[in-house]
């Protein structure tokens, strides 16, 4: 795990469109285990998913709606012959449907054996975070449903909420409704 650090450092500026590399990753020989996240925004809140689960990032395209599915289920699209469902993350967090334009982004991720796309506003960064820096999600009197987040990271005064994709798109749990996003906005 630790051996791939130098490679990461080289790659990052290429992969990033944003200002720079967060301080967290200094390139010094910390033996600490690290994990990489792709972060994206919904409104002002920043979320992250494990880079290992990200398969592709693409601009929003018109989808085919699936009848009688929840509001945040934005239909399916054809990803090189595979039918992939697209979820509106903003809506998933109970903040209403995203008015999707060409500027919006779909992040295709692998969740267990499935491929799903999540609709977000923008992709912002790639973070390399020592595992130790990931904090547990505080229980804030039912405002946060910590189940859907796997942790929080603070970098340069930005707080990034790390998604627990497996739970987020578990159809059994979906009916429960979520308020995680609202809590983070607050």
């Amino acid at each position: 795990m630790e051996s791939n650090s130098p490679m990461v450092q080289e790659k990052m500026p290429v992969a990033l469109s944003s200002e720079g590399i967060p301080e967290v990753y200094s390139g010094s020989a910390t033996a600490q285990e690290q994990i990489q996240f792709i972060t994206f925004t919904i409104g002002k809140q920043e979320y992250g998913v494990d880079i290992m689960s990200v398969r592709e990032i693409k601009g929003w395209v018109e989808t085919t709606l699936l009848p009688n599915t929840p509001e945040y289920m934005r239909g399916v699209l054809n990803l090189r012959g595979v039918i992939v469902p697209i979820f509106d993350l903003r809506c998933r967090f109970g903040q209403g449907q995203t008015d999707a334009t060409k500027m919006h982004v779909i992040v295709i991720i692998a969740v267990k054996s499935r491929m799903v796309g999540i609709l977000v506003d923008t992709v912002s960064d790639i973070l390399t975070v020592p595992l130790n820096d990931i904090r547990a999600v505080p229980r804030m009197e039912r405002l946060i449903d910590e189940e859907y987040l796997s942790g929080l990271v603070t970098i340069n005064e930005r707080m990034v909420a790390l998604l627990n994709e497996e739970r987020l798109f578990d159809t059994q749990l979906i009916e429960d409704g979520v308020t995680a996003g609202r809590a983070l906005e607050a």
Binding site: L66, P67, T69, V82, I83, V84, R114, V116
Partner: peptide, 9 residues
């Protein structure tokens, strides 16, 4: 393959 069954489909 990637989603749940949808009634009528």
């Amino acid at each position: 393959e990637n989603y749940d069954p949808v009634e009528g489909i």
